[in-house]
């Protein structure tokens, strides 16, 4: 029955082991005692140990080479690695600093000291550097701190001549007309046009920028102006509105005129 259920339900061949068990159980019930071929010699063991995933506990990875790189009393120079750690087992004390991965580095030349400073923190361990072999850390609370300058004084060279004085020494700057008579032209308004990069006779950009101002100044002398509107004041909304209204009406007029012209054609 079990066998049938196996066959019908799962439609899967029973394993050799199952067949062996069943055949031994049915042996006594069998009438003819003729021997059947033994199943046991046909059986085969397949792998039953999972090889992938988290079947086994993760083993120790490679060592990370953490720990003290310099022992107490050893001489170090700035930048030397004193202690490599994960997290802050040790904190940087005097003349030391902590790197990106909590590594303790030396900040001054001297001798490494491992110490505790209850006045600073009750249970933190510090690594510091003392300048002399005999010194100890932490430094006494009310005494002047031991510090090193670690610098040398150099005489700076006398200051160079300021740029404007250099130009004065060179004399007046030659104007464009003096540079070469061939490379200069004049336009209809009388402004000078120089041969500029790209083989163009034109004014310099800064001169173009000044042109409108110059013309306005010339008109002002005659009591006229080149401006269509008075000088723009950004906060004067009333003037801005009037201006835009004038522009809109002018545009409408032009459009109407154009339309009429087209209609005639």
């Amino acid at each position: 029955m079990v066998l049938i259920a196996h066959h019908t339900g799962l439609a899967k061949a029973p394993s050799m082991a199952t067949l062996a068990i069943l055949s031994s159980a049915l042996k006594d019930l069998r009438i003819s005692q003729q021997s059947l071929p033994a199943i046991s010699h046909m059986s085969k063991r397949n792998a039953s140990h999972q090889a992938q995933g988290r079947a086994n506990k993760a083993k120790d990875g490679p060592g990370k080479r953490l720990g003290a790189k310099k022992t107490g009393g050893e001489y170090v120079v700035p930048g030397n690695i004193i202690f490599k750690q994960r997290g802050t087992l040790w904190f940087p004390g005097d003349n030391c600093f902590m790197g990106r991965d909590h590594t303790i580095h030396a900040g001054a030349p001297g001798y490494v000291t491992y110490y505790k400073d209850p006045a600073r923190h009750p249970d933190r361990k510090y690594i510091g550097i003392v300048f002399e072999k005999g010194h100890s850390l932490p430094q006494p609370a009310h005494a002047v701190r031991r510090r090193k300058l670690g610098m040398l004084a150099y005489q700076t060279p006398p200051p160079t001549q300021p740029i404007d004085q250099v130009f004065d020494a060179l004399g007046p700057t030659p104007s464009i007309s003096q540079l070469s008579p061939v490379a200069v032209k004049k336009n209809s308004r009388g402004s000078t046009l120089a041969l500029r990069p790209g083989y163009q006779y034109r004014q310099a950009n800064w001169e173009i920028g000044r042109e409108a101002e110059k013309r306005e100044a010339a008109m002002q002398e005659q009591g006229k102006t080149t401006r269509m509107f008075p000088v723009f004041k950004p906060k004067n909304r009333f003037a801005a509105w009037r201006k835009s209204a004038a522009r809109i009406s002018k545009n409408a007029e032009t459009r109407a005129r154009n339309r009429m012209g087209k209609a005639k054609k």
């Binding site: 001489y75 170090v76 120079v77 700035p78 030397n80 030349p109 670690g150 610098m151 040398l152 004084a153 150099y154 005489q155 700076t156 006398p158």
Partner: peptide
């Protein structure tokens, strides 16, 4: 005096 003096870090010989 000393307005034209500049201080620079002392070179420390590497180990």
């Amino acid at each position: 005096p000393g307005w034209d003096v500049e201080f620079r870090a002392k070179r420390i010989e590497p180990l």
